[in-house]
Amino acid sequence: MKDSLSVLKSLPPIATLVTLTAVVIMFTLGVWQLNRAEQKQQRLAHIATVSQQQGISPTQALSQPDWRDMPVIVDGQWLDPWFLIDNKLHRGQPGYYVVRLLDSTEGVIAVNLGWIAAPRQRDVLPTLPQADPLLPLTGVAWQVTDNPMIRETATVSAEPEWPVRLQQIDLAVMGKWAGLPLMPLVVLSDARDNSPYVREWQPVVMPPEKHIAYAIQWFGMALACMVVFVVAVRRKNRQ
């Protein structure tokens, strides 16, 4: 007991506090990365399962416990509102996601038609295809995730000029612009031949293996930090 107390007293308080704090933070980040890897593995397994199913209506998809990535089929009439979702890259080239509203018998649905390149001049909007996408349209159900770092600042106009440029897909903001309530999902349109839009959706951008690699790095850094601290304390005590 006395030996333990003497060892504790010999530890430099500030260096000990900083080291323990750093180790706890790095260990926590490692555990978080492992949890993210498990979530990605479950998501990929879910995608593999639902991709084999036939397309269902958006209402049927929303009735499922986990409706993300469910194949859906939508029909109805295209509405006037167009939205350009800014700052979307495709193979390093800047562009927009083009989102249009569809009036179906189940409600108004936001459909992401895909990516289109942006003009070189920032104040010039891209020329959108005149022909409406053919209906019925197939795709997958996508759940909107809010980016807390983005806050829309555009003032909603009673008579907007379409298309409206937004920083992210926000169904509440888009509903205000259109003056319509929107269903709580977005349909990612399937790829079609001769389409002017690029549709290469990536539901899982970072694979589970990369999260595991990051976790190993954090655990390794935590261990290295402890080893360096112990070695430094022993050398100090010897001196």
Rank of each mutant, 00 (worst) to 15 (best):
S4A: 12
K9N: 13
I14R: 10
L17P: 00
A22W: 06
M26P: 08
W32E: 09
L34K: 04
R36D: 10
A37D: 02
K40I: 02
R43D: 15
L44T: 07
A48W: 07
V50S: 03
V50N: 04
Q54V: 12
A61P: 01
A61T: 01
Q64N: 00
D66L: 13
W67S: 13
W67T: 04
M70Q: 15
I73E: 15
D75N: 15
Q77W: 05
D80K: 14
P81K: 08
W82E: 15
W82P: 03
F83P: 01
N87T: 11
G95N: 02
Y96R: 03
G107S: 11
A110C: 09
V111S: 03
N112A: 12
W115D: 07
W115N: 10
R120T: 15
P133W: 14
P136M: 07
Q143N: 08
V144E: 08
N147P: 01
N147W: 02
M149P: 00
M149A: 13
M149V: 13
T155W: 05
S157Y: 14
E159L: 08
P163L: 05
P163E: 03
R165G: 04
R165Y: 11
L166V: 14
Q167Y: 14
L171D: 07
A172R: 11
V173R: 07
A178G: 02
L185N: 00
R192V: 12
M206T: 14
E209Q: 13
K210M: 15
W218G: 00
F219S: 00
G220E: 03
M221E: 03
M221H: 02
V228R: 03
V230M: 02
V233E: 14
R238V: 11
Q239Y: 09
Q239N: 12
